[in-house]
Each structure stands twice: as structure tokens, then as C-alpha cells.
Simulated scan of single mutants.
Amino acid sequence: MKRITKFFREVVREMKKTSWPKRKELTRYTIVTLTTVIFVSVFFAVIDLGISELIRLVLE
């Protein structure tokens, strides 16, 4: 039981040392991440459609 208590005390101590992003930074990072995910998703969807059409043309 002492080990668990010690573990959580150390966790709290380390969390206090953590440098958390400000609200503006967090918003910016979130927008960049979502934009990147959307861009990559659309990119691979277009590539997938292109390859699918190419395969259909070759097989017909």
C-alpha cells in the first residue's frame, strides 16, 4: 500500500513540473492536427479512387 501511495505522490510531483501549453497554443496545435488529418485523409482517398479506377480500366 505504501508503494502505491508513494507512486501517486511522485506522479503529482512530476505533473507540477510539467509545462502545459497555454490556451492559444493548444487551440493552434489542435487546428494544425485536425487540418493535417483531414488533408492526409483526402489525399489517400483520392489516391485510392485513382488506383481503383486504373485497375477497373485495366481489367475491362
Rank of each mutant, 00 (worst) to 15 (best):
I31A: 10
A45F: 10
T30M: 15
I31N: 05
M15W: 00
W20Y: 15
I31M: 09
Y29F: 09
E60A: 12
T18N: 03
I51D: 00
T5M: 10
V37F: 07
M1V: 08
M15I: 02
M15Y: 04
T35E: 06
V42K: 00
E14C: 04
V58T: 05
F7W: 07
K6T: 12
R28Q: 10
L26P: 05
Y29S: 10
V40P: 01
P21K: 02
V40C: 04
R3T: 02
V12I: 13
T27A: 12
K2L: 06
L34A: 14
E53N: 13
V58C: 04
I31E: 09
A45Q: 00
F8V: 00
T33E: 05
L54M: 13
W20V: 14
V11M: 10
F7M: 06
S19D: 12
T36G: 13
E25H: 06
T35V: 14
L57Q: 09
V37M: 08
L49N: 11
R9L: 10
L26G: 04
K24L: 12
E60V: 07
V11C: 10
G50E: 01
L26N: 08
R56K: 15
T30C: 10
I55V: 15
K22H: 07
I47A: 11
K6S: 09
R13V: 01
R56P: 00
K6W: 04
E60P: 02
S41C: 08
P21V: 05
K6G: 09
R28T: 14
T36H: 00
R23D: 12
T35M: 15
E53V: 06
I38W: 04
R28F: 11
P21D: 03
L57P: 00
K24V: 12
I38V: 15
R56C: 00
V11Q: 07
I51T: 06
R13S: 10
K2C: 01
R56M: 04
R9S: 11
L59H: 11
L49K: 15
Y29W: 14
T36Q: 04
S19E: 14
I55F: 05
L26R: 13
A45G: 07
V42D: 03
T33D: 00
V46I: 15
F39S: 14
R28P: 01
T5P: 01
